[in-house]
Simulated assay, not measured.
Amino acid sequence: MDGSDIVDGTLEASGVLVGAEETDMSEKRPLAADGSDAGSTSNTHKSEKTPARKLGGNFVLALALRRMLKSPAPTLDHIIRFLSSGSGHDKLWMITQYFTKIVVWLYAKRGYKSASERVRILSNLVADYRIMIRLTGLVPMSQFIRYGEQFPAPTPLLQWLNRVMNLSLVCYYPLEHIYWLGAHRIIPLADNLVETSGYWSCRFWAAWVALQFVHLGEEYRVIKNRRQQIFTQGKSDAIKMQQELDAIDAEKRSWNIQLLINACYFPLTLHWSTRGSTFPDVAVGACGTVAALAQAYNVWKATA
Rank of each mutant, 00 (worst) to 15 (best):
residue 234 G to S: 01
residue 218 E to A: 07
residue 220 Y to I: 01
residue 144 F to Q: 10
residue 228 Q to C: 01
residue 162 N to W: 06
residue 221 R to H: 08
residue 160 W to C: 05
residue 238 A to T: 10
residue 151 F to E: 11
residue 222 V to C: 11
residue 144 F to S: 09
residue 218 E to Q: 09
residue 179 Y to G: 03
residue 151 F to C: 05
residue 200 W to N: 10
residue 224 K to S: 04
residue 217 G to D: 08
residue 215 H to C: 07
residue 214 V to P: 02
residue 235 K to L: 10
residue 183 A to D: 11
residue 172 Y to A: 15
residue 146 R to D: 13
residue 227 R to S: 03
residue 200 W to I: 08
residue 206 A to H: 10
residue 226 R to Q: 13
residue 141 M to I: 08
residue 205 W to R: 07
residue 219 E to A: 02
residue 221 R to T: 06
residue 225 N to P: 00
residue 148 G to P: 00
residue 181 L to R: 08
residue 208 W to I: 04
residue 150 Q to C: 01
residue 209 V to H: 10
residue 228 Q to F: 01
residue 144 F to T: 06
residue 141 M to Q: 15
residue 167 L to T: 13
residue 149 E to H: 06
residue 169 L to P: 00
residue 165 M to S: 13
residue 225 N to Y: 06
residue 144 F to V: 02
residue 177 H to Q: 12
residue 174 P to K: 04
residue 192 N to V: 04
residue 221 R to K: 14
residue 235 K to T: 06
residue 227 R to I: 07
residue 242 Q to P: 01
residue 237 D to S: 04
residue 190 A to W: 00
residue 191 D to R: 10
residue 231 F to M: 03
residue 153 A to G: 03
residue 235 K to E: 09
residue 165 M to A: 08
residue 180 W to Y: 14
residue 211 L to A: 05
residue 171 C to A: 13
residue 232 T to S: 14
residue 172 Y to S: 13
residue 197 S to N: 09
residue 149 E to M: 07
residue 146 R to S: 13
residue 195 E to W: 00
residue 186 I to G: 00
residue 227 R to F: 04
residue 170 V to S: 08
residue 142 S to K: 07
residue 158 L to P: 06
residue 181 L to F: 15
residue 181 L to M: 15
residue 178 I to W: 04
residue 204 F to K: 06
residue 201 S to K: 10
residue 164 V to R: 05
residue 146 R to A: 15
residue 213 F to A: 13
residue 199 Y to F: 14
residue 166 N to R: 04
residue 161 L to G: 04
residue 204 F to E: 08
residue 226 R to T: 09
residue 208 W to M: 12
residue 144 F to R: 11
residue 189 L to T: 04
residue 201 S to Q: 12
residue 176 E to G: 10
residue 198 G to P: 02
